[in-house]
Simulated scan of single mutants.
Amino acid sequence: MTPTSLRTLRTRRTPEVPKALRTARNPLTVVALTLALLAAGAAGWGGWSWYAAAHDDSAAYARSRDRALAAGEQAVQNMNTLDHRKLAAGLDTWEASTTGDLHKQLTDGRAGFEKQIKSAQTVSTAKVLSGAVTELDDRAGKASVMVALRITVTAPKGKPAEKESRLLGELTRTSGGWKLSGLGQAPVGNTAG
């Protein structure tokens, strides 16, 4: 063989394989690329799902319901808590918790309430046991709640008296949030057939 033919043989030995093909032949590289694509797809799907859930109308409705319930429970508790020693602050809280006709009744009858409570010298406190929104019209800004309370009334002489009560409250959404616009006893009936 001549030196020229030897040189030709050396150059023909193995053709050069492109880098992309050499990488694809490595099984670990193929697995890593597949896992990376799957992870990117899962992340994209998770992000889209989270965004869709966060902007869902039912989630907004649930948040509105929760705000109405919290405000309703607090307002009903406020309306059943009054200390004759802090009468002005207690009646101010009553007024701040209400709107509409109920608010008007409280402001119009404030002098009479003050006289009654000063005369009785009672302290009443309420604790919410449970509550539920029974109706919610978010667009109209109206809601109804039922709240179960434990009310403790302490007279100047004697032991504190406790009673449990279920009250129905009507709420109206105002610029200051949900406020109590009506309050009454929940009917107690026989549920046995």
Rank of each mutant, 00 (worst) to 15 (best):
A96Q: 13
E162H: 11
G189V: 04
V17M: 08
L167P: 00
K179C: 01
V147E: 09
T81F: 07
G90T: 03
A70K: 05
G100V: 01
V153A: 15
Q77D: 07
E170V: 10
A40H: 03
R166Q: 10
S130Y: 01
P27C: 03
A39Y: 04
A75M: 12
G109W: 06
P18I: 09
R110H: 06
G72F: 09
L136K: 02
P187C: 00
S175Q: 14
E95Y: 02
G72K: 04
L38P: 00
P18G: 04
M146E: 12
A60T: 08
L171K: 08
G100S: 10
P3C: 05
D108K: 09
S5A: 13
A43P: 01
S130H: 04
A70L: 07
A24C: 11
S58V: 06
Q185L: 13
R139D: 15
T2A: 05
E114R: 08
A186W: 05
G109K: 07
R67S: 15
L171R: 07
T81Q: 11
R110Y: 04
V147Q: 06
T93D: 14
S119D: 14
R7N: 13
G189M: 02
G141R: 09
T2D: 13
G189A: 09
D108T: 12
Q121M: 12
L82C: 12
K118P: 05
D108P: 00
E135V: 08
S175N: 14
L106C: 05
P156N: 08
A42G: 11
D66T: 01
A20R: 15
L149H: 04
L171T: 05
T122D: 10
V30G: 00
D66C: 01
K157Q: 10
D83A: 09
A36S: 12
S64Y: 00
S144A: 11
R67M: 12
K118W: 04
K142D: 13
V188P: 06
T4I: 09
A52C: 03
L38T: 15
E135S: 15
A36L: 15
T98G: 01
P15K: 04
E73Y: 02
R139H: 12
W48V: 15
P3Q: 11
S58K: 10
G177E: 07
E162M: 11
D101E: 12
L69P: 03
L91A: 06
E73V: 07
T81E: 11
D92M: 04
P160R: 02
P18E: 09
K127Y: 03
L91T: 08
A75P: 05
E95I: 09
S64H: 07
I151C: 09
G184Q: 14
R10Q: 12
L28W: 10
D57N: 06
S124P: 00
K157N: 02
L9F: 06
R12Q: 15
A192L: 10
L6Q: 09
S130N: 14
G184S: 14
E16Y: 05
E95W: 01
A120S: 14
P15Y: 00
R173W: 03
L28C: 03
S49I: 02
V31C: 00
V145F: 04
L106V: 07
P27W: 07
A43W: 05
V17Q: 07
A59S: 10
K163H: 13
E164V: 04
N78E: 10
